[in-house]
Amino acid sequence: MKDKRLVIYAVISVVLLLSPLFLNAYWVDVLNNVGLYTILALSLNIILGHAGLFHMGHAAFYALGAYTTAIINTTYHIPILWLLPVSGLVAGLAALVVARPIIHLRGDYLLIVTIGFVEIVRIALVNNVFGITGGSNGIFGINRPILFGWKINKPWEFFYLIWGFAAVTIFLFNRLENSRFGRALNFLREDDVAAEGSGINTAHYKLIAFVIGAFWAGMVGNIFAAKMTIIAPESFNFWESVVLFMIVLLGGRGSIRGVILGAFLVLGLPEIFRQFATARMLIFGAFMVAMMIFRTEGILPPLPRKYPIAKMLGREGSA
């Protein structure tokens, strides 16, 4: 069972890795978008999936990261990839400030406040706050990233940058999930009072979940800015937050593989059915509704964590 799953993962990874060889630039670019949304949704998954916090403002952190990179790169010409952690930090700090007062809000209240947050950020960008965001035209002339002297320019080059970043994210987040930190988020999602009563500082963990999620979204913003070379407020509107929310719910809250599948479905399916024009969104909507009724946990809900219980008991027995 487990072996079969590993084989499937390996096959999918290899096919994905080789796909730029047989796909044209258009489809490689579609996969690049899927990749960006995969990482974004994985970062939202920490907040929404693991901690169960209804956060529908994730595009705001993405925007902060993208604008941080765009502004610093166009004014000081600092290389894009050096700005990767800077974008993460700015978004993470914003989360620290914004999330602290709203962390105790529950469910739908948090949802409304975070929707407000993403709108405030977008309107601030449109209104050219501090005169550095370029208003509704946005910022253009952002440099391409250079990795070990290699200038990343073409879609297939971005493909490997984005999916490389996705692979690192999956690796790290998988470890994060299977740790004291990941468990704490699940405990407070399941029962806030019981978690606190078991000695878990629930407010602190909610805040850290926000900060990590925002940090990662900020980093994705950096890559997005370099990929587009031009960014505008419209790329970070409320709808982007909804799409990310949808990916996590559809794929499976708290499930990395579910979120990846969710990103492929939500971004990939409308592309595949492009010839059906308007009907595709209708079909897609119907599919979403059906999912929410018949598979409320998402398509691929998380698998239970594995602990070497048998091994530990065996060792104790033989000692």
């Binding site: 004291r180 468990r183 704490a184 699940n186 405990f187 399941e190 029962d191 009072v193 019981a194 978690a195 009563g197 078991s198 000695g199 878990i200 239970p304 964590r305 602990y307 219980i309």
Partner: peptide
């Protein structure tokens, strides 16, 4: 008030949390 959807061992690990 258990964490119903989690394994028994994980419920107990919740208690271990504050000593880690």
């Amino acid at each position: 008030r258990l964490f119903h959807k989690l394994a028994a061992i994980e419920n107990v690990l919740a208690g271990c949390h504050c000593r880690m």
